[in-house]
């Protein structure tokens, strides 16, 4: 399977947890905390659910919640993808 990118993540965030305005997730958000982007723990659970459905990657709840930034979450998804392939 292809690598999971930050663009894939922002698409999912937009679709399943919403976005305050059209450009909030544009630009360099890799190292911005999810909290600062406006995404709380339930938004992260929702995001993890969509990652599982779309990419078949199962992340444990505590793992998802431990990812503080998009860069970290993208890394965890790719790591899990490699481990399970």
């Amino acid at each position: 399977m292809n690598e999971f990118t930050v663009d894939d993540l922002t698409t999912i965030l937009r679709e399943c947890a919403g976005e305050d305005d059209e450009s909030a997730l544009d630009g360099d958000i890799l190292d911005v905390e999810f909290g600062s982007l406006g995404y709380d723990s339930i938004a992260m659970m929702e995001t993890a659910g969509r990652i599982k459905i779309d990419y078949g990657v199962v992340l444990a709840d505590d793992v998802v919640l431990s990812a503080g930034t998009p860069r970290e979450l993208v890394r965890l998804v790719n790591l899990t993808m490699v481990e399970s392939s």
């Binding site: 399943c16 947890a17 919403g18 305050d20």
Partner: peptide, 8 residues
């Protein structure tokens, strides 16, 4: 309403 509130 802001977009963040709509899915929830």
């Amino acid at each position: 309403l802001p977009g963040r509130l709509l899915p929830q």
